[in-house]
Design a protein around this nucleic acid. Structure first.
Length: 129
RNA sequence: CAAGCAGGCUACCCUAUCGAUUUGCCCUGAAUUUUAUUCAAGGCAAAUAGGAAAGUCCGGACACCAUAGUGCGGCAUAGCGGGUAACACCCGUCGUUCGUCUUUUGACGAAAAGGACAAGUGCAACAGAAAGCAAGUACAGUUCGGCUGUAGUGAAACCAGGUAAACUCUAUGCGGUGAAACGUCAUGUAAAUCGGUGCUUGAGGGCUGCACGCUCGAGCCGAAGGGUAGGCGGUUUGAGCCUUUGGGCAACCAAAGGUCUAGAUAAAUGAUAGGGAUUCACUUUUUAGUGAAAACAGAAUCCGGCUUAUGGCCUGCUUAUUUU
RNA sequence: GGCCUCGUAGUUCAAUGGAUAGAAUAGAAGUUUCCUAAACUUUAGAUGCAAGUUCGAUUCUUGCCGAGGUCA
């Protein structure tokens, strides 16, 4: 019997460690699909999961907390529905940070398309290495 | 119908799919150990942003520091009366100013940080004789001693001058720090090295702008270097909300009954699709159809206000236009 | 979340409540030079926004807006 795709996004899969995030910005590699950018780093994680991720929207580009919140929710939603693309048990564990670099409020479908594209790019790059 | 002012209400809804957090119940596993607790996975159910959550401008609750001490300094408020836990807030009222009406008295409406310059000090550009311990121009009047009036400059001129959102004085109030407070558990290193200083003749801290006073009492300061930056409590039942009755001009108060209504922490309260309601525009006699819009904005200990941003609806008043 | 500080020319700083807001530097034009640099001359440019007090506000008061710092 095939296990149904897991669309959940529990707390374990959220990246919360501040030192790790600083390390991401210093040593992380990135792929981008405008207006999204993914910074990733192969590392050991405290929890027993393959990938921990988080999202960030710069405060300089969106001053309204409401708009920042909405973009972060859209990004999380797109990741939640598409993360099965990268959940391969043979891979080592990664830390992800999604950045939104655009200046306009996005539409959900654009975000989802870019999310799929960026995850494909990530897989390809990992495969090459 | 439009504009302005004042007051009140509200802050789109439903369905499906996929999620997040909290709580309750069920069930499985693990640990402690013993029939309970903790942790983890799953299932079901319920709840889940505001009127301003914002700015952090006031006032409190609460916590710690002497149950908050004394003096100086500092800050705030400013007619009078009331409300309140308290306030710089609210209500009433008096005076002032402005606007409209009126011959006037006055009436109506609006605004405002509205004590004292008759204690002292300071300030007043330009103009002006002169802006303060006085001196003095022109003209007129006159009892010819001086005095009185007018003119001219200016925001203000012989007046107990003006000015206190100038220092200041008066009255009243205010101790300090703020939930990153504070308590507790865990993790980790270095109770290490060098220099200085002190151990009851008192180093240093609590303790704050300063001094005193009280209190703790063996470490403290500097250099270079090392380590942790996690969990739990505080944390949501509160000056709470709703209804009725009574008191009061009102703000508000009292009594009775009902009710439980977010608690996150790299930070939940969401996403997608479809439908409906509202508003606007166009088409149409109407029904209806098509298109567009749906604001300001996201809790972080909690309350009472103020200020600012903002969609829609309702009520009252004023003004103007059109029709009768 | 709390607390605190600061907004003056493009930039760095001045200015007791008083006349046309001052200086350096950068900019522009000109003189000089074969050309540039330097020097000299000339010129343009600002009180974050809105109210209030005052005869008069960069200055005093209040409210917005913006920038920055700090905390266990």
């Amino acid at each position: 019997m095939k296990k149904p795709l897991n669309f959940g996004y529990p707390r374990r899969e959220k990246l919360k460690s501040q030192p790790l995030i600083e390390k991401l910005f210093l040593e992380g590699k990135s792929v981008s699909s405008y207006p999204l950018k993914l910074i990733y780093l192969q590392t050991e994680l405290n929890e027993d999961v393959k990938i921990q991720s988080t999202v960030a929207v710069p405060k300089k580009k969106f001053k309204s907390a409401v708009k920042r919140n909405r973009i972060k929710r859209l990004l999380r939603e797109a990741y939640r529905l598409n993360k099965h693309l990268v959940f391969n048990n043979s891979d080592p564990s990664f830390a992800f940070l999604f950045l939104y670099l655009g200046k306009e409020m996005p539409d959900y479908h654009d975000v989802e398309r870019n999310m799929q594209a960026i995850l494909q790019k990530f897989l390809k790059k990992i495969g090459d290495e």
